[in-house]
Structure formats: C-alpha cells, structure tokens
Design a protein around this nucleic acid. Structure first.
Ligand code: MN
Ligand code: MN
Ligand code: ZN
Ligand code: ZN
Lengths: 129, 129
DNA sequence: TTAAAATTTGATAATAATTACTATTACTCT
DNA sequence: AGAGTAATAGTAATTATTATCAAATTTTAA
C-alpha cells in the first residue's frame, strides 16, 4: 500500500527531522500542533508507526515505557541517561568494531539484527553539577 | 529495608527459577496460582519488582510491551524470536569477546552498562515446519 | 511470650500509553 | 470532475502497570 501525501504526514516528518531529541509520540504531538493545531494524537501515533514501517524514520524501543522516534535513519547508537532520562546519540569510533563483530554474529547465525542501548550519565547532566 | 519472608514471595522465586521461559508477570501469576490460588496479580508485580531491585532476579526490558523476568542472574544474552515472540537464552562463544569489548567501552566512558538484545528466528520455530 | 511496630497482602481503583472505531474529509488516478 | 481509496479528528476501548488501603502476617524487642 502506498502512502498518500497529507499535510499532517509531511509536517510530522519535517518536525521530527529537525530534532535530535528522539521525542515520544506525545512530545512530537505538542510540537506539530503549532503547525496544525487541530491534529489529533492518534494521527501522530498512526503516522509514526507507518513511517517507521516504511523505513523513513526509526522507532526506538528502549528501556522505559514510551516508544521514541528518530528522524535520522543512519546506523548509529544511543545512550539513555540514567539521571534525566534523555536519549542521546553517541558517536564513538569503537562502535564501528563492535558493530562489525555483532553483524558477523548476526550473519553467521542467520539472525535478523540486534538492539544495543548504552546507559550512563549524559553530557548535559555531566556539565551541570 | 529488608524483605520479610512471605509464602507468596518464596513461591514466586521458586516458580520463576524453575522456568527458562522469561515469563511476564501475568504468565507467572497463572503458574503461581496453582500453589496459592488466592494470590493477587498485584502481589506478583510487586514482588517481581522488589526482587529485581534486590538483584535476586533479572528484569528484562526488551522490545515488546510487557516486561519479562528471569530467575537466572548470571551474565547471559537473549534472543527474541521475530516469529513466535519467545525470549530464549543464547549461548555463543563470540559473546564473550563482544561482552569484553562492550565492557571496555563502558569502563572507558564511565558509563553504567549496556543492554543487548538479538532478534531472529528461535530454534523451536526453525525446527517446526 | 507477647504486644507493638513494620511490612505485606488481596482487592480494587487509577493511570499511562497505545490502539481501535467510525463518520467525515482528503487524495489519487483517470 | 468523479469514483475509488486512504487518512483524519474525535472518541472509546484496551493493555500493562502502579497506587491505594484496610486487614492480615511477619518481625522486633520488651
Ligand atoms: Mn538517534
Ligand atoms: Mn535468560
Ligand atoms: Zn542526562
Ligand atoms: Zn520462535
């Protein structure tokens, strides 16, 4: 099935792509309402789900009860801050090697993939005493 | 605060330790009711939460909406089956190396830890059909 | 041993996050 | 433009989990 071009859908992707905060559906809903005040929360949920199925965005099912979404579909890793709960992108060279090893494992065992989540204190929490 | 010795708590740990299926709270509730028919679901939730905080069991927050629990607190890895949804233990030599690398990373960046979940078809689904 | 203090329980209510439903509206394709 | 398909807003329902609280059980310590 192909996706129609609706205003709602376009704004949802646009606004998500502006963020690096990995918002939850309700967080993005608040932002999108500034552009389309009458949009419903269900529409945001529905589209985030659809878009992630189509591979246009990422759905992050990490620890914590709410799903989060990411407009950046490049292969990268996330750190969940144990203090503030933020999910932040992590850029480490070592990851390349670990990623390689994990992909080898996945290939050899004919698996689908893996999900890796680091946890610790984020940079923001580190700097602000 | 120390935990009292209640019959409910004892049976919950006992039954969980007999399983390698990583049951959800409601799945374990059904099993425990065979020993203590009047036990309430809230008691099962409460105790699983407490016991995991005390480190006596593991709480697995993997993909999927329900939390799962594990009586085996040894360091080991899990595979979520994309077909049947089961969570199964995975025993692979490679994991040792990957684990080592990940722990090095965690140490060097002063993180807390990491969470890794593999996904693919489990052995049971592979053999049947 | 016993009684007060602390903890836990079962029952139930409440909450949080997500999904389902549906009449109406918007897109798409010709 | 008009038929056919898909999506929307608004709302209800569902699912998983947590909270509340009086009664029961367990612990502590006299
Ligand atoms: Mn990201
Ligand atoms: Mn296990
Ligand atoms: Zn933080
Ligand atoms: Zn399976």
């Amino acid at each position: 099935m192909k996706l129609s071009n609706t205003n709602q859908r376009r704004i949802i992707i646009e606004e998500l792509r502006k963020l690096d905060t990995h918002p939850t559906a309700d967080e993005l809903y608040i932002i999108v309402r500034e552009k389309i005040p009458q949009i419903s929360l269900g529409t945001v949920y529905r589209n985030l789900e659809l878009l992630s199925k189509k591979g246009q965005i990422l759905k992050l099912e990490l620890t914590g009860k709410q799903k989060r979404f990411d407009g950046n579909i490049e292969n990268h890793y996330h750190l969940r801050c144990t203090k503030c709960g933020r999910v932040v992108d992590i850029e480490i060279d070592d990851m390349l090697e670990i990623d390689k090893k994990l992909n080898e494992l996945v290939d050899r065992l004919s698996l689908d993939g893996y999900r890796l989540e680091l946890s610790g204190i984020c940079e923001i929490c580190k700097t602000e005493k």
